[in-house]
Design a protein around this nucleic acid. Structure first.
Lengths: 207, 207
DNA sequence: TCAAGAAACGGAGGCACCTCCGATTATCTC
DNA sequence: GAGATAATCGGAGGTGCCTCCGTTTCTTGA
């Protein structure tokens, strides 16, 4: 991260999704996003764009046509993952008891944050240039969480006096914790603890 | 700004200034700092380190030996300029009426900020890695300002009910103003205005 | 003054970023 | 289907970052 000064970052014409990509173009685009997600998770901001293009079996020019800057690529990957996380909430809710769904989802949240840590620097640049992205996505995450909590409260498997913002805060504490080697394990334990707290005193726990 | 992920930034052993540099080394070091100051002012973070080395008639290796990262170089340039600004306060106070000294110094402050805008990105990285630097320097600036204001108040050339923090805030407003083409002129006018306000109702204005 | 050793120099080389444009498709029209 | 054409591909090339290490220069002390 080094030379180009202000990260420019012209908006990608939000409404101008109009034009459909050619078949090969959209194929390449998807391939790039998939590879990039892995690369960012593994090597963080040190991931080489040329490597990503190479692994996707695509010329570097193609990568840059789709994503004019590193930050554009990061943004798309980031958005995709937030969406996946939120979709998971839906799916977990349908296939599990409400409290299990909530617990599992929070564990996935930890994994998700773990991946994000690698892209911290790019995300910060992105944030400076276009913080609206974050407003959108954090809203989505909150909504997903809210839905899971509501279901678990309605079901009586967690106590009814919980406030979403308390849980959010606990989760954001995970995000801002220092990046030690055991960060992930510790965070998972923290989530378990949080779940125990939520179950304690619930209607079901009294049965 | 691009690839190396966390800007590392090991401290340069604050107490270990012990070792004197060899004559040629310190010559080159000074030359690099001088050229870098100009380059950053002119081209901001887009200034090429190789260019700086070239203009200083020094190998790129020499530059990197003295300043292991771009941020190290930025820090030194930044510190030098803060010191120069503070020294200017002293000098202006000795050669001018107190209110003139204050006014002139604030104008220089504007110039100083103008130069900093170019290095905004590097300064931010530096701030994240070592915000102590900023605590020191902002203290120095405040002290310099305080001294000029006190002298002017004592002399009766500005009103006595001014608070340093008000002036600081006005100046920091200059810093955070959007970066329009006429930024500099506007800032200078703002300083003039501020000075008029400070003079109004002073002991001398009533004579 | 001079020689030896320490310190500093400097640039080649490897890698990444990003642009530019001729070659290569996919899609459309008939 | 076949040709036209517009969209897309891909990689060479120019620039910058940073490291590594053989060469040069300074300093020391005899």
């Amino acid at each position: 991260m080094r030379r180009k000064e202000p990260p420019e970052f012209k908006e990608v014409a939000p409404a101008a999704q109009a034009k459909r990509l050619r078949a090969d173009a959209s194929r390449n685009r998807e391939k790039l996003i998939a590879i990039a997600a892995i690369a960012f998770a593994e090597r963080g901001g040190a991931a080489s764009l040329e490597d990503i293009a190479r692994q996707a079996k695509v010329g570097i020019g193609t990568l840059y046509r789709h994503f004019p800057t590193r930050e554009h690529l990061v943004e798309v990957v980031y958005r995709r993952e937030v969406e996946a996380l939120c979709d998971a909430a839906e799916e977990l809710a349908q296939n599990n008891a409400p409290d299990v769904a909530l617990s599992e989802w929070m564990q996935r949240f930890v994994d998700y944050i773990a991946a994000k840590r690698g892209m911290a620097h790019s995300l910060r640049i992105l944030f400076d240039a276009n913080s609206e992205v974050f407003a959108n996505t954090s809203g989505m995450v909150t909504t997903a969480l809210q839905r899971l909590v509501d279901a678990a409260v309605a079901d009586g498997s967690i106590r009814s006096d919980v406030d979403i913002s308390d849980i959010s805060q606990a989760l954001s504490g995970i995000y801002s914790a220092p990046d030690t080697p055991d960060w992930r394990d510790r965070s998972r334990r923290l989530v378990s603890l949080l779940m125990d707290g939520l179950r304690w005193g619930s209607a079901k726990s009294k049965m």
